[in-house]
Design a protein around this nucleic acid. Structure first.
Length: 565
RNA sequence: UGUCCGAUGGUGUAAUUGGCAACACAUCUGAUUUUGGUUCAGAAGAGUCCAGGUUCGAGCCCUGGUCGGACAACCA
């Protein structure tokens, strides 16, 4: 096979990231017969977030691009933290994102026997030993990055003794933490990971898949690389913090003479105004700062889905942020751009009034009703049109009226004309106020000849308002979300806990919104554009009796932005 | 006082491997618009961390610095 056959034709012209360059070199030199096989290795101890999405878009994307394969492998070597509920959530997310691991759903725990045999092989080579030191002692003997460590007194046990002890460790003869199996490398190595790293620890706990079969569990360094080799992974991609582990990864390959997978590290995704640490996300969930892993403010895939993000938008985002080795912080504005761009093409436009105020058309007959036709999406004719009921009393947005308007106010005010979207041109007349001076109704008159689409009127009106018929409107709850943190880097302050930066206004619930009647049929997770307001989706909490919408992202607002402060 | 990695507009990522620093987001104009959205046209913004060197020519190569990050869990 030539290198050409391995490269997806659509992609040839774009510039390659450094990993693609490595891969293409490997293909060119015929390494592994030009085969590309990656893996995505989540630990089932939490939900996947957008940073993981970047990683698996890379893993699966590269496999696709080079006509290879990508395995899903659960890195389940630490039974105390892991759980099957996470396995299910992770699979759901990856599938939702549009990736397919076919029948290659693997678990590191599937390899426990092979891993054990490999450890025996290492012992027989005199390259591993059973150590009786406690965790504290091992730590103390490890030295520091600038000072060499001290060799364990158990380092020179005979092969026979090590073999016997290791077998007895496996058989459960020793209590938790009383012994470990360590590689015998170099306690003076400048790389801490080469200072006789621990391969196995004793844990008498049951595992979510292997039950009580094992009481010794492999550590990451031992399990991960060897699992890559077992699966004959050609390119094993991981984040930068594993760079210092690579010499160990390669040491195992050499000593064990196993399949030489290649580890390549790239910079993890950081997003402004959020956190990506699984541990801290768990803390937000446990301490109820959010409603759960799927809270729409969470950067988790579950959260983004509920917020109204689409898989396509997240994939576009992953594509746009790129792959490199330097630390980076991506502006959330880029994510928002990606979802707006996607939803602009897909979301049906509907009328919804979030902060309603009554609008009365004085010269419109009391009991008249009209059915007005309106287009569902100006960006996509094929989405068709629908009917909007219209009558004398409507609701409009309280913001869309001002008694004495500022200079560039294009909306409704006394004596000024404005277009009601898909309906008539109206002119502001007067207001009704309660005893506190709050506006309770706005009176206007309409021009019967200005009906939308009639072609009768040629005068220009600056503004167009969205509205909903008071007689026909449905009540709805709308949840407005803002960034969860009000600091660009909540996790970046040495003397402040990230939770100090939680945005108290990240969720605003509007209980008295009015929406057009067609929304009665909306189904959970449907994407919509509330005209002039933003993109919204139907929350899973929504029912026909109690409609609930989440704001995914507001529309771009050059006017509001300019007038802030 | 160690090892490894990195450094290009505000933010990301490129630069055909030594040939006028490009693209996207963000920002700012203007046009169009029955969404102050979309679309369209345009502007501004870096001379590539610093100092030397090689070269006709360096963001790319060499030398020496500076700054930033990772690494001392029986976590992954």
């Amino acid at each position: 096979m030539t290198e050409q056959t391995n490269i997806h034709p659509d992609q040839e012209h774009k510039s390659l990231n450094f990993i693609e360059q490595f891969i293409e070199e490997d293909i060119k030199t015929g390494k592994h017969g030009g085969r590309v096989h990656t893996r995505f290795p989540p630990e089932p101890n939490g939900y996947l977030h957008i940073g993981h999405a970047k990683a698996f878009c890379l893993d699966f994307g590269l496999a696709e691009k080079y006509n290879g394969k990508c395995n899903l492998r659960f890195d389940d070597t630490n039974p105390v933290a892991e759980d099957t509920s996470y396995v299910d959530a992770i699979k759901k997310d990856i599938r939702w994102m549009g990736f397919d691991w076919e029948d290659r759903e693997y678990y590191t725990s599937d390899y426990f026997d092979q891993l054990y045999d490999l450890a025996v092989k290492l012992i027989k080579k005199g390259k591993a030993y059973v150590c009786d030191l406690s965790a504290g002692e091992i730590g103390a003997n490890r030295g520091t990055p600038t000072q060499p460590g001290v060799e364990s007194p158990y380092r020179n046990r005979t092969v026979e003794e090590n073999l016997d002890l290791f077998k007895r460790m496996k058989n459960g003869e020793f209590p938790d933490d009383s012994k470990t199996l360590r590689a015998k490398i170099d306690m003076a190595s400048p790389n801490m990971h080469m200072r006789d790293p621990i391969l196995y620890r004793i844990r008498h706990v049951s595992h979510h898949r292997t039950g009580n079969k094992w009481c010794i569990y492999p550590m990451y360094d031992w399990a991960h690389g060897q699992s890559d080799s077992i699966e004959e992974i050609t390119h094993s991609l991981c984040t930068l913090e594993f760079e210092v582990h690579r010499p160990l990864y390669e040491w195992f390959i050499r000593e064990l003479e196993i399949f030489p997978s290649r580890q390549i590290e790239f910079a993890r995704l950081n997003l402004s105004y959020t956190i990506m640490s699984k541990r801290k996300l768990l803390q937000l969930v446990n301490e109820k700062h959010v409603s759960g892993w799927d809270d729409p403010r969470m950067p988790t895939i579950h959260g983004l889905r509920r917020r109204g993000y689409t898989p396509e938008s997240i994939r576009t985002f992953a594509e746009m942020v790129g792959i490199a080795k330097r630390e980076n912080v991506i502006d959330v504005a880029l994510l928002e751009y990606c979802i707006r761009e996607d939803l602009n093409k897909k979301a049906a436009r509907v009328m919804a009034v979030l902060d309603p105020v009554k609008l009365i058309i004085d010269n419109y007959p009391d009991d008249q009703e009209e059915q007005l036709k309106t287009i569902n999406n100006p960006e996509d004719e094929s989405m068709g049109s629908r009917i909007l009921p219209f009558c004398k009393e409507l609701y409009i947005e309280r913001d869309d009226f001002k008694e004495d308007p500022p200079k560039k106010f294009f909306r409704l005010s006394p004596g000024r004309e404005v277009r009601l979207k898909s309906a008539y041109i109206i002119k502001g007349e007067s207001v009704e106020k309660d005893t506190d001076g709050h506006i309770i109704a706005i009176h206007c008159t309409y021009d019967p000849d200005s009906k939308s689409g009639s072609g009768q009127v040629h005068r220009k009106v600056k503004g167009t308002l969205h509205w909903v018929s008071a007689r026909h409107a449905l009540n709805a709850e709308v949840r407005l979300y803002d960034r969860l943190f009000n600091d660009p880097d909540p996790d970046g302050h040495k003397d402040h806990d990230f939770k100090e930066f939680i945005n108290p206004d990240s969720l605003k619930i509007l209980a008295n919104c009015k929406v057009e009647p067609s929304l009665q049929q909306s189904k959970p997770l449907d994407h919509l554009q509330f005209i002039r307001l933003g993109y919204f989706n139907v929350d899973p909490d929504s029912t026909p009796e109690h409609l609930v919408f989440n704001r995914t992202v507001p529309l771009r607002d050059t006017w509001g932005k300019k007038n802030k402060v």
